[in-house]
Design a binder for these strands. Structure first.
Length: 323
DNA sequence: AACCACAACAACCGCGAGCAC
DNA sequence: TGTGCTCGCGGTTGTTGTGGT
């Protein structure tokens, strides 16, 4: 396995491309195709290495490249695909026609990554950051994000809005992370996949066991674009549920219709209730059983004292990582 | 107007896979 | 089978633009 020596050659120009160079490259490729990139610069009369030409063509000059800002749908697709594929920028780019891997990578590093971090999400794992200091530091923001006033009146309003549900799911997930830390003497920072809300962050056993339900389950997807410069109490989870068939998720609306979401929510509640009543206790636990406290929040009266208790319990118990 | 800090993005670098000989 | 070449990928750096002081 040899290494390409092309960029080590002396006398080859580096740095930004001039319009003249661009034109030469375009003309040559339009006439002859790129063929061997290594041989191309000489044939095209360019004092560049083949690698530089290839990069310039694939990232900038190619006629099918889409210019302009990323749409909310594209952004959501990137997040979804990144949660599945990781930093496989070329694979991600394959699902975004007209976008290059370099462009996506840059957009990720300059925009999306920061937003996720700002929201307390690990941009690598796409889960709430579980390192102790970060969780502690993020707690006030998370509490604000959850917008307790909305949560406390969740069930007093007949039709809770989708954003409130997303916030609530978000908060609950963080609470479970905290509780995990409390209950885990081994100071491991990993999340128990069966005990946490991975139905938000990835494929859970619930989803895998119950694809029919997962297809109908409320999708909390929201574009990240609208949380720019917004107070934390107006954000929502950027994550969505993947089903089996959704390994490569389709494009979805970034601004789903509110009433539709509400209908979905009601439908999902019915499914959960139905599941609760009909499931066999000895079989694989259902979503409702796995997440009983959370279903209770949705289905039962949520009171001030309930939330107070949670917070006090979570915050007053000795942290395994405290001195 | 000058300076600085930061953001955005184009381009480069190094590595590994695949292929031909 | 080993070697060298080419290409593509992902991480990083450099350059330019923009806003604040």
């Amino acid at each position: 396995m040899g290494r390409s020596p092309c960029c080590d050659e002396n006398g080859l120009k580096k740095g930004p491309w001039t319009p003249e160079e661009d034109q030469k490259l375009i003309n040559h490729i339009q006439k002859h195709g790129h063929g061997s990139w290594r041989a191309l610069p000489k044939q095209a009369g360019l004092n560049r290495c083949g690698k530089s030409c290839r990069l310039r063509w694939t990232n900038y000059l190619r006629p099918d490249i889409k210019r302009g800002n990323f749409t909310a749908e594209e952004e959501q697709t990137i997040i979804n695909l990144h949660s599945l594929l990781g930093n496989k920028w070329s694979s991600i780019a394959g699902h975004l026609p007209g976008r290059t891997d370099n462009e996506i990578k840059n957009y990720w590093n300059t925009h999306i990554r920061k937003k996720l971090i700002q929201m307390g999400i690990d941009p690598v794992t796409h889960r709430p950051r579980t390192d102790h200091l970060n969780v502690l530091a993020a707690l006030p923001q998370l509490l604000a994000a959850a917008n307790f006033n909305n949560l406390l009146t969740l069930n007093q309003n007949i039709q809770p809005d989708a954003t409130s549900i997303a916030k609530a799911q978000w908060l609950h997930s963080m609470m479970q992370v905290l509780n995990n830390n409390n209950n885990n003497n081994t100071s491991s920072s990993s999340i128990d996949i069966h005990n946490t809300n991975n139905y938000i962050f990835g494929q859970s056993s619930f989803i895998e066991n119950q694809p029919n339900i997962s297809e109908n389950f409320y999708d909390p997807t929201q574009s990240l674009s609208h949380i720019d410069h917004q107070p934390m109490d107006s954000f929502s989870s950027p994550f969505r549920v993947f089903s089996h068939q959704d390994i490569v998720p389709p494009l979805i609306s970034a601004s789903p219709d509110e009433s539709k979401q509400t209908q979905m929510m009601i439908k999902n509640k019915e499914i959960l209730k139905h599941n609760e009543h009909t499931s066999n206790p000895s079989s694989t636990p259902t979503f409702a059983q796995d997440h009983q406290p959370w279903c209770d929040i949705i289905d039962d009266e949520a009171t001030d004292s309930y939330w107070k208790d949670i917070i006090e319990q979570t915050c007053s118990e000795p942290w395994p990582f405290r001195e």
